[in-house]
C-alpha cells in the first residue's frame, strides 16, 4: 500500500481541473493511504455551505481531509463551517507528511 499526499491549492470554481485532485484521491484511496491537504483558495471547497463540498463527500472515511489553518483564517472560515470529515491542520503537519512520513506528494 502506497502513501500519497495530494495538495490542492485551487478554488473549485476558478478552473474545471480543480475536481481532478478529488477524483484522483478517490481512485487512489481504493488501494492506498491518501491524505488530501487543501491550501490557499482550495479551502473554499471545505465549507459545507459551498456546493463544491459535495466533491469531498465520496472521500469521507476513505481519505484524510485536511484544510490549512492559515488559509482558513485568512478567509475567515470557522471550524463550525467546515464540511463533515474535514479537519483544520497546520503547515507543520504538511511538512511531517512529506518529510517524516515520506509520502508521495503531488501539488496542484
Amino acid at each position: 500500500m502506497g502513501q500519497y499526499l495530494l495538495i490542492e491549492t485551487h478554488d473549485p470554481f476558478t478552473a474545471a481541473d480543480g475536481g481532478g485532485t478529488f477524483g484522483l484521491g478517490r481512485r487512489l484511496a481504493e488501494e492506498h493511504d491518501v491524505v488530501i491537504f487543501m491550501l490557499q483558495n482550495a479551502v473554499l471547497a471545505t465549507r459545507k455551505a459551498s456546493s463544491a463540498a459535495a466533491a469531498l463527500t465520496p472521500l469521507r472515511g476513505r481519505a484524510t481531509l485536511l484544510a490549512d489553518e492559515f488559509s482558513l483564517r485568512e478567509r475567515g472560515i470557522r471550524d463550525d463551517e467546515l464540511a463533515e470529515g474535514v479537519r483544520r491542520a497546520s503547515i507543520d503537519e504538511l511538512v511531517d507528511l512529506v518529510v517524516r512520513d515520506g509520502r508521495k506528494a503531488i501539488w496542484h
Binding site: 491549492t9 490557499q40 490549512d68 503547515i91 504538511l94 511538512v95 511531517d96 512529506v98 518529510v99
Partner: peptide, 30 residues
C-alpha cells in the same frame, strides 16, 4: 531529514510563494 523544493512562481504574483516560504520555515524550525 532533508527536504528539497522546486519553486517556479515569481514574486508578488500568487499566494504560492507565501505558502512555499511557510513550508521552508516550518521545515527549518523542525
Amino acid at each position: 531529514g532533508t527536504l528539497t523544493i522546486a519553486l517556479m512562481d515569481p514574486p508578488y504574483e500568487t499566494e504560492t510563494t507565501t505558502t512555499a516560504l511557510r513550508i521552508v520555515d516550518s521545515a527549518l524550525r523542525k
